[in-house]
Design a protein around this nucleic acid. Structure first.
Lengths: 142, 142
DNA sequence: TATTGTTATACTCTATAACTATA
DNA sequence: TATAGTTATAGAGTATAACAATA
């Protein structure tokens, strides 16, 4: 790997890892005919928790305009429902359908599998460090 | 943050962090009128090392087809040159121009700044762990 | 007035496959 | 035969701005 410890290189390492894992995940789920963004949304919803579009955007760091089209497709495939939130009728509650739960579980399983394979040689300390740093980077102000 | 320690969540955390930092970086460099991919390529070239397109693709985890158009634009802006490699005339050596070096340094500086801000509260151990894990994830087989 | 989400537009990123040139 | 890179095409992601509905 290049730029291993040069200043400014952390973000480059992050992007490289992100691209590589998303490619690998998409390749493993090829049979399901899902795009990277669709996989990302489904995997986030896999915990069964209903989310607003805003929450989903924050969880996936995806723009609302992107989510509109991603969700349109997922609704079209009957993997997701978009229902008006009675408590705030400006916003939607996004949930998995039965089919969606099945696909989301497959996505999560593929992600777990990928992680186990990649992390076989990595210590728990490293893992804790990874989580701390990626959380810090996720919260960086624009 | 959601899914903090659920299996399969590591990759989600990675993608979130990657999106968030790239957005932040793009916002900080708005004046330079560069896309995320262009910034990524320039920041990788910032060390002054000449690269083939294949190497650049591997460093940025970007597809050759994407690089063709990204490099077309960077050449058009006179930030980069694409010269035939005399040692292997199928491939190119990609280098920064003088203008390109200036812009690449700005990109790296912005990335450093972002990192310092984000990592102020993170330990060296965490940082080492982050590097180990992102390297492992970058090398995951497709 | 501010926020949620969609729409419209234009541009960028991506996959795929076919292709040229070189090895 | 295999590899480096481009081209062509079509689909997906993105920013931006304008918009409707609700708060």
């Amino acid at each position: 790997m290049t730029n291993e410890s040069e200043p400014g290189s952390l973000i480059l390492a992050l992007h490289r890892a992100s691209h590589a894992t998303l490619d690998a995940l998409t390749a493993r789920l090829k049979g399901l005919n899902l795009t990277a963004s669709e996989i990302n949304v489904l995997a986030n919803l896999a915990d069964g928790r209903t989310r607003s579009i805003r929450e989903l955007g924050s969880d996936t760091a995806t723009k609302p305009t992107t989510l509109t089209s991603v969700l349109d497709r997922l609704v079209g495939k009957d993997y997701v429902t978009r229902e008006l939130d009675p408590a705030d009728r400006r916003s939607f509650r996004v949930s998995l359908t039965a089919d969606g739960r099945r696909v989301a579980r497959a996505a999560r399983a593929a992600a777990e599998d990928l992680e186990q394979m990649a992390l076989a040689a990595v210590s728990d300390t490293d893992l804790a460090g990874f989580r701390a740093v990626s959380r810090a980077l996720s919260e960086v102000p624009r």
